[in-house]
Amino acid sequence: MRKEGHGRMMIKPVREERALVLLGNFNPIIFHPAWFASEGLIRKSEAEQAKSELIHPDVAQIDFGGYKLLVTRERFQLTTEQSPYFRVIADLTQGIFQLLQHTPLHAAGYNATEDYRMDNEGHWQALAHLMAPTQQVWADLFDEPELRMLRIQSATPLGHTQVQVSPLEPKPPLTFRIAFTDHFDAPTDSVGRGAKEMLSVFMDNRERSEEKCQQVFSKLVKLATGKP
């Protein structure tokens, strides 16, 4: 644990991940490291070092070192566990679909997952009790009921936001995972009209999505530790 400025949370996650997901119709075989470099989306040396783990008409999976790309016919997904690349993958997504502007997109998701390790096993129990008081509700029905996963969803003007919280270890857990998703549906009048409008909605909101997920992580960690 440590202190930080600007009101940020005091506990650092032991694992962080950001994933940008687009749903639509894709042609996986065009996603090759050399294509990215030739379009100036990545450095030539990055393309040379990228590992094409899979290139096939139905699926492409490339490890660029700092981030990974997975494309199937229905899904495009860029994932990174390295914080300096959180914004880089958003730029890359934007760059790709500015080039592939006729790709039909119908949904997009900003995913943030963080794992927090507590120094006290009581922290998860405190958080679990606040989110779902199992002893009050379930103790007369089951022996030692435990919260294993909780999912909260809220509608937004553009789709929905969802948070899932779960312990990562058997009882008593010290580490828990918070998974945040900001889901955007394509504007109804833009479906079938290419990537431009869906991408614009997604990119215009990416900083707000990141701010929202930080608020969620911060709040849940504070609830777990009991620190204001």
Binding site: E53, L54, N111, Q162, H183
Partner: peptide, 26 residues
Amino acid sequence: LHLEGEATTDMARVPPRKTFSRLITL
């Protein structure tokens, strides 16, 4: 490896695995 048929952008809801008749990696 999210080889999903399920149309969700949510990474927490990992879609079911899918068997490919041809190819893959590594």
